[in-house]
Design a binder for these strands. Structure first.
Length: 818
RNA sequence: GCCCGGGUGGCGAAAUCGGCAGACGCAACGGACUUAAAAUCCGUUUUCGCGCAAGCGGAGUGCGGGUUCAAGUCCCGCCCCGGGCACCA
């Protein structure tokens, strides 16, 4: 058979047609004795088109899934749609299309693109979060959490984006602005909201980053989560409002410095402030609250208001002035602090500014107490206490412990742990989301929708204007309902859930995606979980990945699953950049994968995103480099098709070409296998395949049936995880049956991979001077003799004194001369 | 300010445990094939100096020190780029 040119359209469309309506070829086999492997890529938002970030993410996951199939695992590899969310409503406003219609069209389009890319998903398990069959379980989980006191309502000052017309979670605020509208400053509004008590799990979420997840998740992600949780050990202490019984509770991590406290500062929103502040300062107070809401916290100047009142320090009995400060946060600790300017940088700045006293009470272990009058900055380190009553002369750490205990014994405080993480506000005044399943009854108050009445279906006949409150308020048949408890006329909750709820548990639904009795059967989830490999962008390092961890722990506590963490291993791939910045519509630097597929083929596209950089690193898109991958595929294709016939002709003795080809082949199998089993540097795997093909071209006239059948078969199989279409087509050309990714992964033999002879560099004083070729295993003595005899070496050693010779057998010789 | 990444040819990168720096690919240049071009195949390409040349020698992984027979890799001190956090008491 003459060599065949590679025509990507012919090859890919042929197999695409055969595969596209057969999701079962990628299905799992419950009856299989093979070990399970669950590989999951983060599900996309159905924006309408696949972008290069998706292609990269899914090419990594797909290569892994195919490899694991070939390694004999029962692989679960599903895909779904994060289908609720704002863009659908924006599209409705802009184009007058219904969010559902728009979303479903986008899903259909992206699914088509994914199939064209050749991603091996079991579409029978597809999950779409905007379908009632899915979101009814969001509601079900909500009710379970409500029962357990994990879902509750409270009024709070919350971030409000005037552009989105909705509340944002703290996590959705980026530098004081909305995460979607980076130039729109977030405002503060007081609203009654639904919250999930993630703080209840703060300790466990933190601990697991040191236990279960350590090693399997990138350290970077774990660090970000630890910072986000922000655990801090300290003491709560009550100061007393002078002349009253009113307590002002403060939180401090440095109770050992409390003798240096020279004022108490309260957050402007603190509930006590209103009664403390002089009436003529009310306006200034309001201005303070508003300006903080509007400004980027980074460039907020410190500002304070003296209340004219005093507080009594429970340790020293001393009275200190009470201030209001714009840098004190209501949402952290107790909303009030004691200011110790001598030992806290921020307090120092504040007290200097307002001429408040500075009293040092900690000296360095080997130094003097600072002089209040001359000190230029706060001393924030630990040290030894000075002038602190009965606790004078103690090490900071001991003083902290003893003084904390003292507060507790005397009833004016206690040791306390504070977290930075706050409860998760899930209410959204939006249409395209999961309705929160509660009813507001005038008599009964908040009444959860009974479980057997789920789902609370999102009505479709709404008008979306993007103005005012939720569109659901204008749908009477949704809004008006009878109270499930007393039967009286009542009102449905119109808030919908944050879409992070949808993505917090979707990967469990894949296991049992059609279950209509439960979110999923525990037994099935317990088989597949934890996910063996979760893959996605580092942009989700905090939000999605902490919420889904929380969700899993709740599911465990209600008895649905046995594991406390959803994913054993996490891989975060780098971004795809163009000209050094992220591709985005506003920058107009989008590369459409579909154009690449049309021009070069899906296989080339996949090879390229894997080849251009190691997967965890950001990669800059350079279209000029794509042609190299295309050329490589052409070379492979021509080589295999040209040698198919020759492979079946009986041959005599193996030629030197046969031996070289086999050696390189086994080296390549080993290299690719190692890359898969360790660090997924597919760029080097593909480079190894290229080296193999280059070598095969070099010896192509000297190849016989002694090597060709094995070479052609293994080369084809090695290509499978990266270029599934070309690989399958070559498999077919080789006259083989079945699906490539269901074949066993090729094996290698270290002996066959071994070079015949070792080429050993010889250095003189660390500089390469010659190379000698010897048999493997040549002993050190002999190597030394050969090296010293080498003319190029002698040019540098003659007339000099040989001080030392380092010999690393089979590796290197270094002769040290003087 | 704090915490992570990263800095290697014209470009993307490789060097996995301290042992030949630049694999593989892009781009460029040259050769073969061709009437010609494309495609393909083969070759050259870190840089400087010497040489007609095969070659020989020096320098070289952001900068400055150090450890070592040997450093892109380890240690100390800086600079630059990217990301995250940022009054969290």
């Amino acid at each position: 058979m003459p060599e065949k040119p590679y025509d990507h359209k012919e090859v890919e469309l042929k197999w695409h047609e055969q595969w596209k309506d057969h999701p079962e070829i990628y299905s799992t086999d419950a009856a299989s004795p093979r070990p399970k492997y669950y590989v999951c890529e983060m599900l996309p938002y159905p924006s309408g088109r696949l972008h290069m970030g998706h292609v990269r993410n899914y090419s990594i996951g797909d290569a892994l899934a195919r490899y694991m199939w070939m390694r004999g695992y029962d692989v679960l590899h599903p895909m779904g749609w994060d289908a609720f969310g704002l863009p659908a409503e924006n599209a409705a406003i802009k184009r007058g299309r219904h969010p559902r219609e728009w979303t479903l069209d986008n899903i259909a389009e992206m699914k088509r693109q994914m199939k064209r890319m050749g991603f091996a998903y079991d579409w029978n398990r597809e999950v779409s979060t905007c379908e009632p069959e899915y979101y009814r379980w969001n509601q079900w989980f909500f009710l379970k959490m409500f029962e357990r006191g994990l879902a509750y309502r409270k009024e709070a000052l919350l971030n409000w984006c005037p552009e989105c017309n909705t509340v944002l979670a703290n996590e959705q605020v980026v530098e004081g602005c909305c995460w979607r509208h980076e130039t729109t400053p977030v405002e503060q509004r007081a609203l009654v909201q639904w919250f999930l008590k993630i703080t209840e799990y703060a300790e466990e979420l933190l601990n697991d980053t040191y236990k279960t997840l350590e090693g399997g998740w990138p350290e970077r992600v774990l660090t970000m989560q630890r910072n986000w949780i922000g655990r801090s050990e300290g003491t709560e202490v009550d100061f007393t409002l002078e002349g009253t019984d009113t307590k002002i509770r403060v939180f401090t991590t440095r109770v050992d410095t409390i003798y240096g406290a020279t004022c108490v500062i309260m957050a402007p929103e603190h509930p006590l402030v209103d009664s403390l502040i002089e009436p003529d300062k009310r306006d200034a107070l309001k201005a303070m609250i508003d300006s903080r809401a509007r400004k980027d916290p980074a460039d907020l100047e410190k500002e304070g208001l003296a209340t004219g009142k005093f507080a009594v320090n429970p340790y020293s009995g001393q009275k200190v002035p009470i201030w209001v400060g714009n840098f004190v946060l209501m949402g952290y600790g107790t909303g009030a602090i004691m200011a110790v300017p001598a030992h806290d940088e921020r307090d120092f700045e504040f007290c200097k500014q307002y001429g408040i006293a500075i009293v040092p009470v900690i000296r360095p272990v080997d130094g003097e107490l600072a002089d209040a009058a001359t000190m230029k900055e706060a001393y924030g380190e630990y040290g030894v206490t000075v002038n602190t009553g009965q606790w004078s002369g103690l090490a900071s750490a001991d003083a902290k412990k003893q003084m904390s205990d003292f507060a507790e014994q005397n009833g004016f405080g206690k040791a306390a742990i504070t977290y930075r993480i706050k409860d998760w506000g899930i209410s959204r005044q939006r249409y395209w989301g999961t309705p929160i399943p509660v009813i507001h009854c005038e008599k009964c108050g908040i009444v959860p929708v009974p479980e057997d009445q789920l789902p609370v279906v999102l009505p479709l006949n709404v008008e979306i204007t993007g103005k005012g409150r939720s569109p659901l308020e204008n749908v009477p048949e949704f809004l008006n309902v009878n109270c499930p408890q007393c039967g009286a006329a009542a009102r449905r909750e119109t808030d919908t859930m944050d879409t992070f709820v949808d993505s917090s548990w979707y990967f469990y639904r894949y296991c049992d995606s059609t279950n209509d009795k439960a979110p999923f059967a525990s037994q099935v989830a317990n088989h597949w979980f934890p996910i063996d490999q979760y893959i996605g962008g580092v942009t989700h390092a905090i939000l999605h990945l902490i919420y889904s961890r929380f969700w899993t722990k709740v599911m465990r506590d209600i008895g649905l699953v046995t594991t406390g963490e959803p994913a054993k291993n996490l891989f975060t791939q780098g971004m795809v950049l163009k000209d050094g910045t992220a591709m985005s519509k506003s920058k107009g630097n989008i590369v459409d994968p579909e154009e690449m597929v049309e021009k070069y083929g899906a296989d080339t596209c996949r090879l390229f995103v894997l080849f251009a950089a190691p997967p965890e690193r950001d990669m800059d898109w350079q279209e000029s480099a794509v042609s190299g991958q295309r050329r490589f595929l052409e070379r492979v294709y021509r080589f295999v098709t040209a040698h198919v016939d020759k492979a079946s002709i009986a041959a005599g003795e193996p030629t030197p070409g046969d031996r070289r080809a086999l050696r390189k082949l086994h080296q390549t199998v080993r290299k690719v296998t190692t890359d898969f089993d360790s660090r997924w540097h597919f760029n080097t795997s593909i480079a190894a395949l290229m080296e193999l093909v280059n070598e095969l071209y070099e010896v192509r006239n000297d190849l016989t049936a002694n090597s060709l059948p094995e070479v052609l078969e293994k080369l084809t199989l090695l290509l499978g995880p990266f270029a599934p279409y070309a690989s399958q087509d070559l498999w077919d050309q080789l006259g083989r049956q079945g699906l490539v990714f269901r074949q066993p992964w090729p094996s290698y033999d270290d002996e066959l991979a071994k070079e015949e002879q070792a080429e050993i560099p010889v250095q003189v004083n660390g500089k390469l001077r010659a190379k000698i070729t010897v048999a493997f295993g040549t002993d050190a003595k002999e190597l030394e003799r050969l090296a010293l005899a080498e003319p190029k070496v002698r040019a540098f050693t003659d007339g000099k004194q040989v001080v030392k010779i380092i010999v690393v057998p089979d590796k290197l010789i270094n002769i040290v001369v003087k």
